[in-house]
């Protein structure tokens, strides 16, 4: 049976080894994540582009032609019924 102080020396050794390994392992992981990010990270300007449809809904104005088409369609539907 080792004396307690010997065991403590051993435990201190394991502490440095353990913390060292945990840090080395996770630092390697950081580097790998960065490498992957360089290749696969989404580009910052990747925002959805505005389509004309979006603009209509945002401004609240509707193309008069479309209004006309819808009006005719409704009239035809009512005429049928």
């Amino acid at each position: 049976m080792n004396s307690i102080s010997e065991q403590i020396t051993q435990a201190v050794g394991i502490m440095f080894l353990g913390m060292g390994l945990v840090f080395v392992f996770l630092i390697m992981l950081i580097l790998c994540i960065k490498l992957v990010a360089m290749k696969f990270a989404p580009l910052p300007q990747d925002k959805p582009t505005r389509t004309p449809d979006n603009e209509i809904s945002q401004t609240g104005r509707v193309d008069p032609k479309i209004v006309a088409v819808i009006t005719v369609a409704i009239q035809q539907y009512r005429a049928k019924a």
Partner: peptide, 16 residues
């Protein structure tokens, strides 16, 4: 990840 590593010191200090 460095923070996740640092917090593991509790484990090894308790070993002692």
């Amino acid at each position: 990840l460095l923070l996740g590593a640092a917090a593991q010191f509790g484990i090894f200090a308790t070993l002692i």
